[in-house]
Amino acid sequence: MSRSASDLAIEASGLVKRFGAVTALDGVDLAVPAGSVFGALGPNGAGKTTAVRILATLLRPDAGTARVAGHDVLRDAHRVRQTIGLTGQYASVDEDLTGRQNLTMVGRLLGLSRTRAGRRADELLDEFGLTEAGQRSVRTYSGGMRRRLDLAASLVSRPDVIFLDEPTTGLDPVKRAEMWGSIRRLVAEGTTVLLTTQYLEEADNLADEVVVFDAGRVVAQGSPHQLKRRSGTRTLEVQLTDPSRLAEVTGLLAAIVDTEPSRDPGAGRLSIPVTDGTALPAVVRRLDDAGIEVAELALRLPSLDDVFLALTGHTTGSGSGNTVGTDAGTTTTGPARTRTERSAA
């Protein structure tokens, strides 16, 4: 469905970026609705970070156009920087300062008075559960605390649009879930989030819409549910109440779907790929006719891992063989430089 420009927080058309002989972006189009989480999914070297750096005015495209919050990233770079926040792949806070001093410093660089900067720092420390740690040196913070402080720093100016470039890299599952909660709160308050990630689960949990990057191109776009349906294959799972009847049910399923199911004898579980939902009622009838009780019967969509593999022929971890330094984890122009440039522009 097409959207008017007023509905979009970010729009890009035909973005191209080359680094020597390597084409990092090859005609990328993006349309990010305001007030949503937009996921950019792909392995290192796919082009995600390069796209973010162009949208954040840290790189100039070789071709194409882009607008953020209605401002052209080339002609109105100063206005774009006043509108956005950026958190890179690694926390860029000053370890020798306390958490509060880091946030206050950012506020001062953005032109806030000392009093307003301190007040905003206290608000953000409270919002991100860092009030007690606010007077401690960041050197004593855990990785998750640094990531939360880094995200808080990108919100000092209350940006309309925030770019989160793999914000949960290196976090354990608990800290990752905490960061997800912070992102959901941002969107609930009206912020637009462009999230780049290699974690398919992250895109599935957070994103309203996802673009799949591979070798500098967007190879698919849609909601996680829509992308899952595109792969075509679903999985029928059967959990038996009586695992001793596993062999009998294996034959029954194979006869209906004409495929041998995979089995987990210890759990009494079988799973079998199906192309549509028509097999489900047939399986229910045959199980009922045979007097076989099931604890669970489910038809599951493919995971985003399955979708990515179907679209690109490789997993997110294998990459596309098109890795360049700006998209492979280096952050020489991350959030700290962005904030300084914003105040100086």
Rank of each mutant, 00 (worst) to 15 (best):
M1W: 01
A5N: 11
V22E: 12
A31H: 09
A31M: 05
P33A: 15
G35L: 01
F38M: 00
G39L: 06
P43W: 02
A51C: 10
T57N: 02
L59H: 04
G64T: 11
A66M: 11
R67D: 01
L74H: 11
V80N: 06
Y90F: 11
N102V: 06
L103S: 00
G107H: 02
G118A: 15
D126W: 03
L130S: 10
T131K: 15
T131S: 15
S142Y: 08
L149G: 00
L151R: 04
A152L: 10
V156G: 03
I162K: 04
L164Y: 00
D165S: 06
T169Y: 06
G170P: 00
R176K: 11
E178D: 15
M179E: 07
W180Y: 15
R185D: 06
V187F: 05
E189H: 14
T191P: 01
T197D: 05
A215I: 10
R217E: 14
V218C: 03
P224K: 07
S231Q: 14
S231T: 14
T233S: 11
R234H: 10
L240F: 08
S244R: 14
V249Q: 12
A255L: 08
V257Y: 04
R263T: 15
P265M: 05
P265V: 04
S271W: 05
D276W: 04
A279G: 14
A279I: 01
R285Y: 09
A290N: 12
L297S: 10
L304P: 14
D306W: 08
L311S: 08
H314I: 00
R339F: 15
R339D: 13
R342G: 12
R342H: 08
